[in-house]
Design a protein around this nucleic acid. Structure first.
Lengths: 235, 235
DNA sequence: CGATGAATTGACATGACTCAACAACTGTGG
DNA sequence: CCACAGTTGTTGAGTCATGTCAATTCATCG
């Protein structure tokens, strides 16, 4: 499942960083050939099937990951056994930043869809973030994005009635900003994102379908009535 | 209210960084005399009275702040006008990191108690974070801490029954880890932290007092029964 | 001492949870 | 292709927690 890429191939091969298809937003996109010469451990690609675990909370962190495609959930467990999804990872998102500081991962990351990832050795990231101002800046932008996401999770997905939280979630699901279509997550995952039971999640979605806020194109693939959903959020 | 400190005084005066009372945890604690020579705009101290606003969301960000003492709330507003407190800032916390990346502040920060802050010019932070590996590392640790706090906010303060959320909040309030005493926030602020109405906050606190989970030492200053509160969280 | 805002409490309405039955979908083996 | 089991989603009925609105008490400060 893991395709080996040496550091030479990393900037000169078919699956390299310098010619990456998500180059403008991948972590190492600002690096030069010289930078890659400094990396000893290879950069690797990996494909995860739905349900498989990338890493768990407490695991020693040795790699930083960029999501090339797919969707993953970042989960934390509570003392009473309840689990909460604290963020989603999708294309161009970076996973595992926390191990650069605390040495360990702090979430359990599980693929929801088939997902492709690139992974970077911790030492390479730490070293290059000092040596390369571009990467230094980019890393800070990644922290910033993660924190903004977390703030949005608190305000939009954890505050207000179940209908408002659901509307906020649905509005975030389409991949592109101009798209109004998306796949639905399992009701259990939705519940774990919005802090509600799966029954309430199911009921709310059924209600949205009945009232036309969303319409099912095919099983679990829906079209959003964006203005109407925004009205729910603001109402 | 603002006491001017030149860059010379910053490492040689009475209110300087190198001899700061929270030196081991202040932002510029790892800097050398040479580093301070590179800072042109002075580092300043400031005292905020309860209720006063440090900055608002959308303000252009020109300074990073370290909290020397006191307590501040970081607030975001929702489309429906509801406001949510997304984090608290207390001694050694850094405020305003986001403007290093996005140019603007993303929260409204309001002092809850009388608070003392130091502020660092944005350019100095950006420049030194490249030049000084210590600060670079420290900055990353600050991002990490903010993100961990946000994750805890999602899991512990936004998930579960009102009693569990309240117990989790109370357990975080004492300043020192070994302290079991703390001041209570206004019921409205508690509500805005825990996503509940101020009435529910008030009722829950009254209930905790009746059942001995907390006991009032004097008005709004309480002693926690830590094991009992932890039992509530885990129950 | 009175005026003001904060906190508490009560009564009631309602949204969300619980438990349970059932329906729809998925994958497997015959 | 169908039958089946296992999983996931839907729906209903009843309960409980939380929100709403209102009245009252308490704390603070001039």
């Amino acid at each position: 499942m893991i395709k080996r890429v040496t550091s030479i191939q990393a900037w000169n091969g078919t699956a390299d960083c310098l010619n990456c298809s998500i180059r403008s937003s991948a972590l190492f996109s600002g690096l030069t050939e010289d930078d890659f010469d400094l990396i000893h451990e290879p950069i690797e690609q990996q494909t995860l099937e739905p349900g498989s675990v990338l890493y768990k909370a407490g695991d020693p962190g040795r790699h930083l990951y960029t999501v090339r495609s797919g969707l993953l959930k970042m989960v934390q467990y509570l003392p009473d056994g309840y689990q909460r999804i604290v963020r989603l990872g999708r294309s161009t998102d970076v996973l595992g930043l926390e191990m650069l500081v605390g040495q360990h991962y702090q979430h359990e990351v599980i693929a929801l869809n088939t997902s492709e990832l690139c992974r970077y050795p911790k030492e390479a990231v730490l070293h290059l973030s000092q040596a390369n101002p571009e990467l230094h800046k980019d890393l800070m932008a990644r922290w910033h994005k993660a924190l903004s996401e977390a703030d949005a999770w608190i305000t939009k997905l954890s505050t207000g009635s179940s209908k408002k939280r659901m509307a906020n979630l649905l509005l975030r699901l389409p991949d592109a900003d101009d798209s109004t279509k998306c796949y639905l997550l399992s009701r259990e995952d939705i519940g774990s994102i919005l802090s509600m039971t799966l029954e309430t999640a199911s009921r709310t979605i059924s209600d949205f379908k009945r009232t036309g806020l969303i319409s099912e194109i095919r099983h679990n693939y829906i079209e959003l009535d964006v203005p109407a959903l925004k009205a729910v959020v603001e109402g």
